[in-house]
Amino acid sequence: MPRKSDIEQAFRNAIKHEQSGRRTVTTVDFVKELAKLNWYWSQREANVWIEYYVTTFKDISAVEGEGRTFMLYNSDGWI
């Protein structure tokens, strides 16, 4: 049986660390990580969760649609 705490773990597992230091998460990767933990969400459901619960990532998607990309940011201008 899936647990709510698995959702946060799936989000952390979906974070990609680039050589430049930038950290990003795609909706597709988040949904894949959720499925590994028995949570089967649509991309729309995943986006809604990210927008509501994750305040440190902003949408940097280059195209419209549900397959979005979020990047870690700091509102003070530094990471």
Rank of each mutant, 00 (worst) to 15 (best):
D6Y: 12
T24R: 12
R68P: 04
V48M: 06
S5Q: 12
S42A: 02
I79T: 01
N74D: 15
Q9D: 10
L34G: 06
E66S: 10
A46W: 02
E66Q: 10
S75P: 05
I79D: 07
M71N: 02
K32R: 13
S75L: 13
G65T: 03
W41G: 03
Q43H: 14
P2Q: 04
I79M: 03
Q43L: 13
Y52V: 06
S20L: 02
R3Y: 12
I7N: 00
G67A: 15
I50G: 04
Y40Q: 07
R3P: 00
F11T: 08
T55K: 13
L34Y: 05
L37Q: 07
K58E: 12
Q43A: 10
W41D: 08
V54I: 15
D59N: 15
Y40D: 10
T69G: 00
R22N: 10
R12I: 12
F11D: 02
Y40E: 08
Y40A: 04
D29F: 08
R22E: 14
E33I: 08
G67L: 10
Y73G: 01
G77F: 09
N38P: 00
V48F: 01
E66W: 00
K16Y: 08
Y53M: 14
E18L: 14
W78F: 13
K32W: 01
R44G: 06
A46F: 02
R44W: 02
E64A: 14
G65L: 06
V63D: 14
F57Q: 01
L37V: 06
Q43F: 11
R3I: 11
S5W: 09
E51V: 02
I15S: 00
S75C: 10
E45D: 06
A46M: 04
W49S: 03
S61N: 05
G65Y: 04
D76S: 12
